[in-house]
């Protein structure tokens, strides 16, 4: 049964790279690109052809990452989420990842549907949706920094960081 956590870790890394990679793409590249594209009238290229595809892989990669992470924790799942049995550090990473997953499905995606026109919305609703989606996305970039620290070092390198 050692194959399950080993394969789960592989999948967790691949999906996680896709999720956080696209999150960084949105925040470090697309936000600024969209501003410039709106100014020269070419924003539709991004909003019509790039953003919907990026969001599709982004939101489902988030789900796969979380599920693979849960499989990787296996019997330590409850200990991690309750900070028991020396699992507090990886548990913080797991909680941060879970909050980020909620931000994706509870805030970013529902508001992006209004922004991109998949769901009818007035101009006022779109402006509000744009602000909420932007802040949720930026909050996820902020949370990704401690999340990756605790994921990378919370268990495998806990001797270095936490003296365990």
């Amino acid at each position: 049964m050692d194959y399950v956590p080993a394969l789960a870790r592989w999948l967790h890394f691949m999906a996680g790279i896709m999720w956080i990679g696209l999150l960084y793409y949105f925040n470090f590249v697309q936000v600024a690109a969209l501003k410039a594209a709106t100014a020269d009238g070419t924003a539709a290229g991004i909003t019509k052809h790039v953003a919907p595809r990026a969001l599709l892989f982004f939101r489902w990669a988030a789900v796969v990452t979380w599920l693979a992470g849960a499989a990787l924790l296996g019997g330590q799942f409850v200990n991690a989420f309750t900070f028991q049995g020396g699992m507090a550090a990886i548990g913080v990473g797991a909680w941060l990842g879970t909050i980020m997953l909620f931000n994706v499905w509870g805030l970013i995606w529902p508001n992006q549907k209004k922004i991109l026109g998949f769901k009818p919305a007035t101009d006022e609703e779109k402006a509000k949706a744009r602000r909420v989606a932007f802040l949720a996305s930026r909050a996820n970039v902020m949370l990704s920094i401690p999340m990756l620290f605790f994921m990378a070092g919370g268990l495998s390198h806990r001797g270095v960081f936490f003296g365990m």
């Binding site: 925040n27 470090f28 900070f83 020396g86 507090a88 550090a89 913080v92 802040l135 930026r138 909050a139 970039v141 902020m142 949370l143 990704s144 920094i145 401690p146 620290f149 605790f150 919370g154 806990r158 960081f161 936490f162 365990m164």
Partner: peptide, 30 residues
């Protein structure tokens, strides 16, 4: 006060500060 999440640098610095805070919180638990 300006929201730090409005700028990329503000976001990254906030993330680093949060990492430091959580690190010491976890260290006190373990």
């Amino acid at each position: 006060m300006k929201n730090p999440l409005d700028s990329l640098w503000g976001t990254v610095i906030s993330g680093l500060i949060l990492t430091l805070i959580l690190y010491f919180v976890v260290k006190s638990i373990l």
